[in-house]
Computed example of a mutant assay.
Amino acid sequence: MLVIGSQSVLGAIPEDRLPPAATASIEVDVAFFDDPDDRKSDQVDGAIGELSAFHEMFGYYAQGVSVSTAVLPAGWRDRLVRVDTASTAPARGHLLDPHDCVVSKLVAGREKDYVFAAALLEHGLVDPVTIAERIETLQVSPALLQRLRNWIGHHGNP
């Protein structure tokens, strides 16, 4: 299993160090490496997704997505944060490296994504030079690449 959205930072950064803008989402994006037809993702939506009994009871929910949902920098799979504890056994989870997560959020380019990325940068939880380096590995249009360079240049001053 892979946590692919903003809440993936919880695997690498203790929650008490995260600014409110980084933990504001009540949605956890969950993908599966072995789910070519998205059946497992659909099951997540049905069982613990938005408007489910789980959502009503706990106030947050999971959204099943595809691993290809996010545009990620080259080598992201090698940098996954592994969650393998007694409470997750026999399963294990994987979460995005915080820098890869920020890059994917900048690619998505929604206002909430920029707020998330800026908050992590402002609190020194991600390195702007690493973000800039990973942006350069993306397979995106030249216009998008320039937008990302401009954003990190303005917000991170790498």
Rank of each mutant, 00 (worst) to 15 (best):
D42C: 03
A53Q: 12
V129T: 15
Y61R: 03
H155I: 03
A31E: 00
K105I: 13
Y60R: 03
F32M: 12
D16V: 09
A12I: 05
P98Q: 05
H123R: 12
L125S: 04
D37A: 06
R147Q: 14
P142K: 10
R77H: 15
Y61L: 06
S6W: 00
R149G: 02
G124T: 11
D29P: 00
E133G: 04
P98D: 06
S104R: 07
E27C: 07
T130P: 07
R39P: 07
E56W: 14
P20S: 14
V3M: 09
D29C: 01
F54T: 02
E27W: 05
G11H: 01
Q43F: 11
E56N: 15
R77L: 12
P14F: 05
V65C: 04
D37H: 06
G156E: 09
S68C: 08
G11M: 07
P36G: 08
P20Q: 15
W76A: 06
V9Q: 01
D37C: 09
G59W: 09
D37K: 05
E111L: 11
Q7V: 01
G5P: 03
L51Q: 14
I131R: 03
K112C: 08
L95V: 06
W151K: 02
V44Q: 00
M57D: 14
S8D: 01
G49V: 08
